[in-house]
Computed example of a mutant assay.
Amino acid sequence: MTQHTPPASRICPSCDGFASVAVTIGGRDPRGHLRTITAHCPVCHGTGTVTARRVREGAGA
């Protein structure tokens, strides 16, 4: 019996699925931890995926 294959997720073309990153801003705090900020992809808003575009009927050709 064949198994149902789920559709492939739509990975964001801008970040290739790596939507959030921690960037060091230099130095360490008094407790010895690196100072970091979190940056999110502006296209997918930190999810790593994008929604499918709808195809309009009668468009083109």
Rank of each mutant, 00 (worst) to 15 (best):
H40D: 10
T2Y: 11
P42R: 13
R53K: 14
T38N: 00
G27N: 06
P13Q: 06
S9T: 03
T49H: 11
R28T: 02
P7C: 12
S20I: 12
Q3L: 14
C41A: 10
P13S: 09
R31V: 01
D16F: 15
G48W: 02
V43S: 14
G48S: 05
S9F: 00
S9V: 06
C12P: 04
S20D: 06
T47G: 05
H45S: 14
R54T: 11
R28D: 00
A22L: 15
T5I: 14
A61D: 08
R31H: 12
A61T: 12
P30L: 03
P7D: 15
C12N: 05
T24A: 09
R35F: 01
P7R: 14
A39N: 06
D16E: 15
H45F: 13
T49C: 03
A39Q: 14
F18T: 09
G26E: 06
D29M: 01
H4M: 12
C44N: 02
A61W: 07
V43G: 05
T47W: 04
R53N: 10
G46L: 08
H45Q: 15
P30Q: 08
I37G: 00
V50D: 02
R28V: 00
P13D: 06
D29R: 02
G60I: 11
D29K: 01
A59L: 11
A61E: 11
V43F: 11
A39R: 15
T24P: 08
R28F: 03
A39K: 12
L34N: 00
R53P: 02
A52K: 10
T51P: 04
M1S: 08
H40A: 10
S14W: 06
R28I: 00
C41W: 04
P6F: 12
G26N: 07
T47F: 04
T51H: 06
P42Y: 09
Q3F: 14
S20G: 05
H40L: 09
T49S: 09
S14H: 11
H45L: 15
E57W: 07
H40V: 07
R35L: 13
G48H: 02
C41V: 06
C41T: 02
G60A: 14
V21Y: 04
R31I: 01
A39S: 12
A61Y: 06
Q3M: 13
H33L: 06
T47N: 07
R53Q: 15
M1Q: 07
H45V: 05
I37R: 10
H4S: 12
T24C: 03
G27A: 09
S9C: 00
T2K: 12
H4K: 13
H45Y: 13
R31D: 09
G26V: 06
D16G: 11
R56Q: 14
V23I: 15
S9A: 10
A61H: 09
V23R: 12
I25M: 09
R10W: 00
P30D: 07
P42H: 12
G27L: 04
T5G: 02
P30H: 05
T5R: 09
E57S: 11
